[in-house]
Nucleic acid binder design. Structure first.
Lengths: 240, 240
DNA sequence: GTCCAGCAGGTGGTCAGACCACTTGACCAC
DNA sequence: GTGGTCAAGTGGTCTGACCACCTGCTGGAC
């Protein structure tokens, strides 16, 4: 039997999720005022500290604005939310948002080659060796999930070599969105992570320290799956 | 006289900042255990809920890991922090981190053209009109801060037109890092936001719906300031 | 001596109730 | 109208308590 870790959802977690859903799913419009903490606590059947903690987390995510003595209002998440909200917006009301998925694929296709170019510029022989090991590990497995894990580790090395904190943090945010769904994505990503040849070409380009070649090679790694997934997403959208 | 809104720092805010600094500035290594909530509350002279709220926010930012009944440990922020932590990492221990600034400039130079290309693909006549208005507003002012505000509004339109939630959220995160420092950056960004001509070329390219031309035009808008700032940053680093 | 069940202590999770600080809006005097 | 006052409601903070959970120690069984 397939056991899995029990997920203990704390009370504030639960409240946070509910309020977040209200905001993200549009039940609460931007500018609208939330009920008071006391009232929310009463309605949800929890204590005020629990509500408070959830609202503070919403504030930290720039989704709410609290004013001491005044009302707590909803902010426009499209305008203020940070990249960390991406996973929550990818799946809204239980269904995958095709437009959001498309945007992630497009972003990947822009950023991946840019990072690869920087890595080529800055990486040394040690990087080339590490990348080669990583591709070898990728090539050595047949399991689609394991391949994705290896591909992720590969890109992790590339991002490290790019020596760019901005890209590193973007990568972290995107990975945080990607990892929980890795099993669900095994089938659709199989095409990409199976292209060991393309990864080897990219590795060679980075190893040679040639940014432009690396840029092109990274594009060749990412584009095929991007294109076919975008086609699939368009098909889904038109069916629905 | 230059009045400005009074900033009221709440107790949990203060605690959050202190703990964040400890983590980000390396006083607390990754894997290290934090003192217990009760102990922290005692040491900091605040109540436990205040400490608790701060720690929860740290957890939300993926900088801490709390285990019910066990200790709270520090996570590796380089590996787990999201893009929203960027502003806090840009200025560490009170000084601007040149490497982080460089990474932001590089990221901008990769993402800007990508977004411009998407906007060209998807924007219509309405977008062209809005962008033209925005550039006109940019051209009509002499104040460096006001110009930056207009440039920000311009890019906001471009990101909107790109119709990409992933890029929109990145832009939001980067803007949240940029806006508070906008006055301090007035001088160094003056070169870029003064290039009205380059913005007009970009606007025309987007208006024509030609992604590749737009990509190049966006590069021409962003690259000059990027290059000169990178040179300046290198000089700073070598002096220190 | 070795092993392990059981317990005690410490930790985070949650709650209730209280009081303070602040904003808002109604009301009133001018 | 203008400005002051006040009450009501809101968020901000604290105290103290209890529950759920993990860890390490301890003492008995072997």
């Amino acid at each position: 039997m397939a056991l899995q870790p029990v997920t203990r959802r704390s009370v504030p977690d639960e409240v946070f999720d509910q309020v977040l859903s209200e905001v993200v799913d549009g039940e609460l419009e931007a500018g609208e005022a939330l009920p008071s903490e006391r009232r929310l606590a009463e309605v949800l059947g929890v204590s005020r500290p629990a509500v408070r903690e959830a609202l503070q987390r919403m504030t930290q995510t720039r989704l709410l604005e609290v004013r001491h003595g005044g009302a707590t209002t909803v902010r426009d998440f499209r305008r203020f939310a940070g990249l960390d909200l991406l996973p929550r917006l990818l799946v809204r009301k239980g269904v995958l948002d095709a437009a959001v998925a498309r945007s992630i694929l497009e972003a990947r296709l822009v950023i991946g080659p840019g990072v690869a170019a920087l890595a080529a510029e800055r990486g040394g022989p040690a990087l080339h060796a590490a990348l080669t090991d990583s591709v070898d590990a990728l090539a050595a497995t047949d399991d689609d999930v394991a391949r994705q894990v290896h591909a992720l580790a590969y890109w992790d090395l590339v991002v490290d070599a790019a020596d760019s904190l901005a890209f590193r943090l973007m990568f972290n945010s995107l990975r945080a969105a990607y990892e929980p769904a890795i099993e669900a994505l095994a089938a659709v990503m199989a095409e990409e992570v199976g292209q060991v040849g393309a990864y080897r070409v990219l590795t060679a380009a980075i190893g040679e320290g040639d940014p432009e070649t690396a840029r092109v090679a990274a594009d060749r790694v990412l584009r095929p799956a991007t294109t076919s997934l975008l086609t699939a997403l368009t098909a889904i959208k038109e069916t629905s």
